[in-house]
Design a binder for these strands. Structure first.
Lengths: 355, 355
DNA sequence: GCAGTCAATGAAAGCGCTTTCACATTGATG
DNA sequence: CATCAATGTGAAAGCGCTTTCATTGACTGC
């Protein structure tokens, strides 16, 4: 009663009457069967040209809009893809989603987005509702997911792909880069500049394999050179400018001796914060210390002195994810693992270690 | 043949077999009719407690996941909302969509996003496909839309709401702020600081009522004070840092005399660009000239000297849009027009006119 | 000229679910 | 005790579309 009542009222909300133009109406106007009308609209090659035109004309006069639900039910195809990202508030994910959407729309698919808030458990919940919604493919960020998430998708045969992370040892399809290796490269670069005292402002590593891999990569390379990244020189904090700023202050404050000469940040936002705080503290960058970011977001080339960072092809990953999923769905061959290139972009925020 | 073949191959792609657990399977296991199973799952109040538990248990053992297409077809409800935004690459829209998504998920609705690329014609196309997809409500950005867009929605009785713009004279439901008034306020503020020579770096006004209203607001206030905004002092350019930078350079370059002392930008990104270019040109901000933005994006409080800008409650608009649409859909009363507050945030980039 | 082929069409059977509607039960009521 | 209203449940009819399958002609080749 309640639901029905609500619906009735909603139905009444429409200014004009509803538009219950259905395929059979189009067929009737065109003087053909519903089957033919369907074919004329969806697989024009299967009907005569005259037929096609006649049906199209009828559809146009009636303002026919197909009902996706009915179509999905009958054809078992929703032509919808889902994406679960941590948050659209991080421009980097927004850009990835934009890349995905653009490509999907060109391929005739719609995009349903859901956010996980960096929580594996919420990711699983969101995924379940997307599956209920009938998405034919799913894009995730990162490779650390609940096992039951994979199980859900695999038992139902729904294609999926991880992005942002590339790990050859991970058995699941993925499009991304090796965060560990990228962080290693950044560290190598800084070592090459003579830095020996390091600090890191990392993202929250829990439920975030990218943040964890970046931290691990830094640690690994330093350890190989006999340098220990002390825990007081590592701060995990959410990705954000203010957070980066605060972390930098904690790291550098009240420590005139043995200060790090290189601060590696988990992403650009944190690095911007570090940069601003360094300026506020009167620390010369890169003279007194170097600061690096990760993502190469739009501001990093502009903010003085220019942020040294790792360029990540976000839109490209979204686009490749779209291609991967649609190819899976449409039965074309796919490569399960695709590695995209990240590029070290050296700008003014990094330089030789002091002394 | 082609489609069927593709589908067959896709079906075979699933690692394990498909999971065609349908409601009737659940009903059978629970030893009840499909009707009762449906009720037990969706309207628990209509069945006995024992029944409810029995069906839920059966659904759980079978790993039942309802088919949204079938449900939508039978109930005429998709529980899906659509959003058409210019682009997710602009963090401001990404944040709005994030606000919308968060609220919708709490209300049990899914979100389909599409981007218009700031083009009215693409917006119409995207809207049509969303309508085909069966969205029950739609969110747009701005109030300038193709008439046929409104017609489509109204003949079908689909609730919709514009955001980002508030115009009492616009007959359509909307949640936003008055861009004209906001830009006027900004201009007033600068006039109060003694500025008389103005320039504006505006967004592309075609198909963008926000950009147009902001420009008009500036023009209007200046005209009221007898100041003409000469066309050589207005540049329309896409929202972006580089674009803002270039525009600023054009505006200020090779013009030692009669230079503007206040540059009003259409959004923060352009303002950042202006700020950077001013620094590169050795122009003192706010000593020699003031620069203002619009949006109050996350960086504006951090970038020295701090950007004076108009704070826009993006997430709040998304959230209000979600509430509005869902209330419409579920037959609850709604307010057709909601005005949100924008706030002038004065920071270091603006100051008294020189001299 | 006649079997055989092929393209074009229509009839009809669902896709998996919701939702009347009718049919028992039950318990309360006069 | 017979009557009436709840209450809980099942049978069955679709929701609007796609897709077999069968049928019809029109055409080919021998």
């Amino acid at each position: 009663m309640e639901t029905a009542g609500g619906r009735k009222r909603f139905r009444g909300t429409g200014l004009s009457g509803e538009s219950p133009v259905k395929l059979s109406d189009v067929a009737a106007l065109a003087g053909v069967s519903a089957a033919t009308a369907s074919r004329a609209l969806n697989t024009p090659g299967k009907v005569s040209d005259a037929m096609r035109d006649k049906v199209r004309a009828a559809a146009a006069t009636l303002g026919y809009v197909p009902d996706a639900a009915a179509r999905a039910l009958a054809s078992r195809r929703s032509r919808t893809i889902g994406a679960v990202v941590p948050t659209l508030d991080n421009p980097i994910f927004a850009a990835g989603v934009q890349g995905l959407e653009t490509r999907l729309e060109a391929l005739g698919y719609a995009l349903v987005v859901a956010s996980s808030d960096y929580r594996a458990e919420k990711e699983l919940r969101q995924t379940t509702t997307l599956v209920e919604r009938g998405v034919e493919g799913l894009m995730f960020v990162g490779i650390a997911h609940r096992p039951s998430l994979y199980r859900l998708l695999e038992t139902r045969g729904i294609p999926y792909v991880s992005t942002w992370s590339f790990d050859p040892s991970d058995p699941h399809p993925g499009i991304g880069f090796d965060n560990f290796e990228a962080a290693s490269r950044m560290t190598d670069y800084l070592l090459g500049l003579g830095h020996r005292r390091f600090a890191m402002i990392a993202g929250i590593t829990r439920d975030n394999d990218r943040a964890a891999a970046r931290l691990a990569g830094v640690r690994h390379v330093l350890a190989a050179r006999g340098i220990v990244l002390e825990s007081r020189n590592v701060i995990e904090t959410p990705y954000g400018v203010t957070e980066g700023r605060d972390a930098f202050h904690t790291l550098l404050g009240g420590r005139p001796d043995g200060r790090p000469t290189a601060v590696i940040c988990g992403n650009d936002l944190q690095a911007f914060g570090a940069l601003f705080e360094a300026a506020a503290m009167g620390l010369d960058v890169p003279g007194a210390l170097s600061i690096t970011g990760f993502d190469d977001s739009v501001m990093s080339g502009h903010i003085p002195p220019g942020l040294t960072t790792m360029h990540v092809p976000t839109a490209e990953m979204g686009q490749l994810a779209a291609d991967y999923l649609v190819n899976c769905i449409e039965g074309r061959p796919v490569r399960a693992k695709t590695r995209v290139e990240v590029r070290l972009v050296v700008r003014g925020s990094s330089g030789p270690a002091p002394r």
